Simulated scan of single mutants.
Amino acid sequence: MTIEELKKSGTIIFESISGSRAYGLDTATSDTDIRGVFILPKEQFYSLNYVGQVNNETNDIAYYELNKFMELLSKNNPNIMELLNVPEECVLYKHPIFDLIKKEDFLSKLCKITFANYAFTQIKKARGLNKKIVNPVEKERKSVEDFCYVRDEKQSILFQDFLSTKNLKPQHCGLVKLAHMKDCYNLFYNDDLNYHGIARPNANEVCLSSVPKSEIPIAVLYFNVDAYSTYCKKYASYWNWVEKRNEERYKRNISHSKNYDAKNMMHTFRLLHMAKEIGLDKEINIRRKDRDYLLSIKNAEFEYDELVKKAETMKAELDEIYNNVDLIEKPNVDVINKLLFKIRNDFYKDTTKLQLP
């Protein structure tokens, strides 16, 4: 199911702007995130074609089927809990049936864990970006040959260096697997025989040749498979990140030279502040009153270690706050199941009436 198909189906019961524009933390280059809830048609819900979520490629726009939405609420998922108190001006559509979902049924002491854990995930992401910024991977992909080494007297040297020092051509090389020695091969050289070289273009493994028994190997070659595999994963991860990264955000992080993703750090403190507010006031405050402070973090006005220390202090404070808060330990599954049944049943009744001639 596509987003276009979902919108035409008439099954959306809630839709709102979310993310930075809902928090009041948006800037001129901010994307517009959309989150929503829908109820699958009865026939599809009871079939094998259940769809739990519909979103676009970047996940900027996402709609959750009622079952998945309620399940995430029951776990106090921060991104989903926010939808229970979105600023009125951000609500694009709300079916009256959505009002049956009350935040009081879901706000619980689990928020201390879920919001704080999510906050510290953002810290890891903030530092993780730095690894890619300061450790770029060359666009030209290395080959199998770059991970092959030859034993030459008392040392091992790169296969390509071995060829260069011996004035040999790679196309005249042949490999035969060396028994009982993992990833090791006898290396043969003969410009009169039809050898295949040690690797074909774009191959992920060495290439073996048919070698006459009378031939004498010139060396033993070792293919470092583990290093090659690690490199391939790193290469794919880096260039996938380059393809999908937000260029404005990337340039901003490069320019402030603090070696962390400031936007992720901003969300760390937004989440910690929200967890504190839930513990003190039993409210999910979406529109941020601490906007100026959060934007100062986004503008990289602090050092990474300083922010981590503050975040750890705030996380410790949450323990005391939640020990004294009058909130349920966790949402009551029986209450949620009854509510889920009522909403779905009432919705199906309404849509059936609309379809009657």
Rank of each mutant, 00 (worst) to 15 (best):
L178Q: 04
P201N: 09
S209T: 07
L193G: 04
Y250T: 10
D192F: 14
Y228M: 06
Y260M: 06
W239D: 00
D226I: 09
P212M: 06
G197D: 00
T165Y: 11
E248I: 11
V225C: 01
L187C: 02
V225P: 02
V206R: 10
A199V: 00
I198W: 10
N224L: 03
K234F: 06
E243R: 14
L163H: 12
L163C: 13
K244R: 13
T165M: 14
N224Y: 10
L163M: 12
A203P: 05
N194K: 15
A236M: 08
C184W: 08
H256F: 14
N202R: 15
Y222W: 14
F159V: 02
Y185I: 01
N167S: 12
W241R: 08
R245G: 01
C184I: 00
P201W: 10
Y250Q: 08
Y238S: 07
Y231C: 10
G174A: 09
K234A: 09
C173I: 02
A227C: 04
C173D: 02
Y235E: 01
H256V: 04
R249A: 12
F188D: 00
D191W: 01
W241L: 08
K166P: 03
S164Y: 15
I216Y: 01
P212I: 02
L221E: 03
K213Q: 14
E205L: 11
L178K: 11
S229P: 04
E243K: 15
T230N: 12
K213E: 13
T230M: 07
S214W: 07
L163E: 05
S255D: 08
I216P: 01
S164P: 06
K177I: 04
E248N: 13
S156R: 15
C232H: 11
A199I: 00
P212D: 03
H172I: 00
I157W: 07
V206Y: 10
N186Q: 13
N253D: 07
A227H: 08
T230E: 10
H172Y: 15
H180N: 10
R252E: 06
H196R: 14
Y189H: 11
H180W: 06
N186A: 08
G174C: 11
K263T: 02
E243Y: 12
A199Q: 01
N246C: 03
N240F: 05
A236C: 03
L187T: 00
Q171W: 05
N186I: 01
R252P: 00
K258L: 03
N186D: 08
L187S: 02
V206A: 07
D261M: 12
W239E: 02
A262E: 06
N194P: 10
L158T: 05
R245V: 11
H172N: 14
K234C: 06
A236S: 12
D161A: 05
C232A: 12
H172P: 02
S214P: 03
P217Q: 02
Y185G: 03
V206T: 07
Y238E: 03
E243C: 06
V220Q: 09
Y250G: 08
A179H: 10
W241C: 02
S257G: 10
N194E: 10
S209N: 07
S237P: 01
R200L: 15
C173A: 06
C173E: 04
H180Q: 08
N190M: 05
P217E: 00
V220R: 09
N186M: 11
N259K: 14
E248A: 11
N194R: 14
D226C: 06
S229N: 15
S214Y: 09
D161F: 01
Y238H: 12
A227G: 04
K169F: 11
H256K: 11
R249K: 15
